[in-house]
Design a protein around this nucleic acid. Structure first.
Length: 766
RNA sequence: GCGAGCGUGGCGGAACGGCAGACGCGCCGGGUUUAGGUCCCGGUGGGGCAACCCGUGGGGGUUCGAAUCCCCCCGCUCGCACCA
């Protein structure tokens, strides 16, 4: 028999699956009950290609999807490319190539890599966000939000990256640095487009309770939204003005000794953050609303602009930051007791000096980017009409070719240098208009892509209502924890807004999210920016995709991740080779042995206890459901060893059941190998269309168990016993053990703890 | 600083509060092979090499019984980082 050639096997079956469109679903016939929308975060095709971190994520999600298909679900598992955006454009700048041609090439490269993973992608529904057929609808979504008053153009201080030469959203900061390039950011005041995400703060927060997400992810989003209930208190200033201060602890009002307002240089972005005690007296004073005492007004670096209140009331006696600021600036500390919050609030409300208020850490989503590689925001500015929506019929507003796509640094996108793009009649009055030249944030492209997948072929609608009602929401979203406060939040917000507009029939796009762990390299997260990526291609060419997939899933629990090292790869190579030999070569029976009697191999007696097989069916399935893919694979290894050891004793019927069942259990993990083995067993194509095996319930009811016997909590024996013993029978059995009697030393047990079918603990101590 | 997660053999990792170390790597021994590799079998936490004893970052606690639950401390990783 031929030896196992994983490279030949994977190439042949990949070609066949593609020809047969094995993984493409006929969405027209999928019922709502049977569908399973298995979504993974799509890659951005920026730089050197997919790395094994992607392989890890996709292998896990694909294994889950393949298993669900065998469980009878109609699995929709689309894939696409997040091809617009700064990351792609920066790579284009680095290599000095136009992003249009570059993207076409990198997408092709990624497609090839994704195909070679052997995942069950539904290529019929691929989307590419930089394709006009896609971003036309991104613009359409923007227009719907604009109509609803959720997209607003306003002047605001915004975060500016002096390296990327664009403004950034709050979510795209890492501390006071740009999350893409690490450059410390600065601040600008310009007119920008915002999506009013804060209007949904409460619903984004409250909706979390309904979701099947990891608690850590919910906690993170809650913290990000940061709802605080408190009171806004008015302070009259001596120059006749008024300052409103927000506090969550109105009871500390008697202890106020100063007011703090944002210092101009502290700003949004957080320059000057750190010590937090720098400040400058403004020369102005306010009056305490209760005592009438004079309160100096200070500019303080620690006050965050834009949180919603004009000032912070400084209470050195009750707040650490206030105390530090007061101490550093010679301000008094007034040691007053804290009053009951309700009393103070009611007092203020009664005199019109304050009102209950809720504040959020969440900001509106700034989507303007003064960059090239993104969807133009579909607005025309008119001197008479203001910002006017481009009519739907004129979409897409195509991204024009430009001579130079480098960011300008002037605060304007490179599109501003294309007169024939900029100058266009106002859609409202027909007068001279200027197109908006900013493009939108990449995260806006990906905030709705899951809606597009089922309807990807449609050029008349963004998404088909009937298909959407049937296929969505997403059943399982496999993604990275780094997206919890960004992409997952944006997608929830956009979906809620579209739901309110009656455009989608659900408010939550991702009722169930599973976060994968990270593959690390030498202790550090593997990422392109760190330059420590390992590329899957060499491994796929050398040991095959099946072995790489299984190895990645074997080394660590999927949701925890682990350190990449190929040291243990040999273990999976051995496993697959053994499986191949066992199922494709005739058994090594006595009749075959050179020293044995000549003749054909004799079948075994056929009285092998097959319960381990049924047990494995249950265990592997349970493990996949829980994404414990590492232990699922170890169960397969144990099953293989058991099959090898008992093969000779099995008759033809038993062996057939073992061989086919093993192959079915292997299929979600090693799709090519399983398909080949299935064919060689003479079974009809395809193994991936087969139902998951059903265990024999009688076999699962084990009639014999091992009872562990302890004396005073220490293991002294383990005895074979029939299942279902009652306490007295179990204790009698335990007392029959010589070793147990020896350790009892003649003392009768004072107590016996019995865990049915597991353990007896005889306790002698009082 | 705040929040969360995690600390188990030489290594990756198993273990509904119930036999700690499954499975795999590596290593040791044996077999097959002209030889190396492959392949097959066995062993592999520490101490005694037997009965047993000790062992899950450290210390305390709850429990008949703790890697698992609780408290304190140490270390690593990941979020957030002046949000009043």
């Amino acid at each position: 028999m031929a030896t196992y050639d994983p490279i030949e096997v994977q190439a042949r079956w990949q070609a066949r699956w593609e020809r047969d469109r094995l993984h493409e679903l006929d969405l027209g016939r999928v019922g709502r009950e049977e569908k399973l929308y298995n979504l993974v975060e799509f890659p951005y095709p920026s730089a050197e290609g997919l790395h094994v971190g992607h392989t890890y994520t996709y292998a896990g999600a694909d294994t889950y999807g393949r298993y669900q298909r065998m469980r009878g679900r109609a699995v929709f598992q689309p894939i696409g490319f997040d091809a617009f955006g700064i990351h792609t454009e920066n790579y284009a700048l680095k290599v000095g190539e136009d992003p249009t041609t570059l993207t076409a090439r990198t997408v092709q490269r990624y497609q090839g890599q994704l195909r070679r993973l052997g995942a069950a992608w539904d290529w019929d529904h691929e989307v590419v966000t930089s394709d006009p057929a896609y971003y036309r609808w991104t613009q359409w979504v923007f227009l719907r939000l604009h109509e609803a008053g959720l997209a607003v153009w306003r002047e605001a201080p915004v975060v500016w990256c002096p390296s990327c030469l664009t403004v950034l959203a709050n979510e795209q900061l890492e501390g006071d640095r740009c999350e893409r390039c690490g450059t410390p950011v600065t601040e600008r005041v310009t007119r920008q487009w915002f999506l009013r995400m804060t209007a949904y703060a409460d619903r984004l927060l409250d909706g979390l309770d309904t979701l099947d997400w990891a608690e850590s992810a919910k906690r993170q989003q809650r913290a990000w939204i940061g709802r605080s209930a408190g009171v806004e208190i008015d302070f009259d200033t001596e120059d006749g003005g008024r300052l409103a201060a927000f506090t969550t602890r109105p009871g500390t009002l008697p202890g106020v000794t100063f007011l703090a307002v944002p210092s101009p240089e502290a700003g949004l972005a957080g320059q000057g953050r750190g010590q937090g005690t720098e400040g400058r007296f403004t020369g102005r004073h306010a009056r305490h609303p209760v005592t009438g005492g004079r309160l100096p007004i200070w500019e303080a670096a620690y006050v965050v602009a834009g949180y919603g209140a004009e000032a912070v009331m400084g209470v050195p006696a009750h707040d650490e930051r206030d105390r530090a600021f007061a101490a550093a600036n010679g301000l008094p500390l007034l040691a007053t007791p804290e009053e009951p919050a309700e009393v103070v609030t009611a007092w203020l409300e009664g005199r019109g000096r304050g009102r209950r208020a809720t504040r959020y850490r969440l900001r509106d989503w700034l989507i303007s980017r003064q960059r090239y590689w993104g969807p133009p925001i579909p607005i025309v500015h008119c001197d008479h009409c203001g910002p006017v929506r481009v009519p739907d019929r004129d979409l897409p507003v195509r991204l024009p070719p430009v001579a130079d796509f480098r960011p300008t640094g002037t605060g304007q996108s490179p599109l501003a240098s294309v007169p024939e793009f900029v100058h266009t009649p106002c859609p409202a009055c027909g007068g001279p208009g200027r197109r908006e030249t900013d493009v939108s944030d990449t995260f806006f492209d990906s905030a709705w892509y899951f809606l597009r997948y089922p309807s990807s072929g449609r050029d008349d609608v963004a998404w088909d209502p009937e298909l959407t009602a049937r296929l969505l929401p997403v059943d399982t979203y496999t993604g990275g924890p780094e997206h919890v406060a960004r992409h997952h939040l944006y997608a929830r917000f956009v979906t809620m807004a579209l739901h309110d507009l009656g455009l989608v029939p659900f408010a939550e796009p991702f009722p169930r999210i599973r976060l994968h762990g990270f593959l690390r390299k030498d202790g550090a997260k593997m990422s392109k920016s760190r330059g420590n990526v390992v590329v899957p291609d060499d491994y796929i060419a050398r040991v095959g995709a099946d072995t790489l997939r299984m190895y990645l899933l074997f080394v660590a629990p999927f949701e925890e991740g682990g350190d990449w090292s190929d040291a243990g790869l040999a273990g999976i190579e051995r496993f697959t080779a053994r499986a191949w030999r066992l199922l494709t070569e005739p058994p090594d029976l006595p009749g075959d042995h050179p020293d044995g009697p000549p003749g054909p191999p004799e079948p075994g007696h056929g009285r092998v206890d097959l319960r381990p097989l049924d047990r494995a069916v249950v265990d592997v399935g349970d493990d996949i459901e829980r994404l414990k893919l590492n232990t699922a694979i170890s169960t397969l290894m144990e099953l293989l060893r058991w099959a090898r050891q008992h093969q000779a004793a099995m008759d033809a019927g038993q062996w057939d059941r073992v061989a086919t069942t093993f192959t079915l259990l292997l299929a979600p993990f090693a799709p090519h190998l399983a398909e080949e083995l299935w064919a060689r067993l003479g079974r009809p194509y395809s193994v991936h269309s087969q139902p998951w095996p059903v265990p024999d319930p009688a076999a699962l009811a084990a009639e014999e168990i091992t009872l562990v016997v302890q004396v005073d909590g220490r293991r002294r024996d383990a005895v074979a016993a029939p299942a279902g013993l009652d306490r007295d029978q179990a204790v009698q059995l335990a007392l029959a053990s010589d070793n147990v009697r020896r350790h009892l030393g003649g003392r009768p047990p004072r107590q016996a703890v019995y865990v049915p079918d597991r353990l007896v603990n005889l306790v002698t101590r009082g």
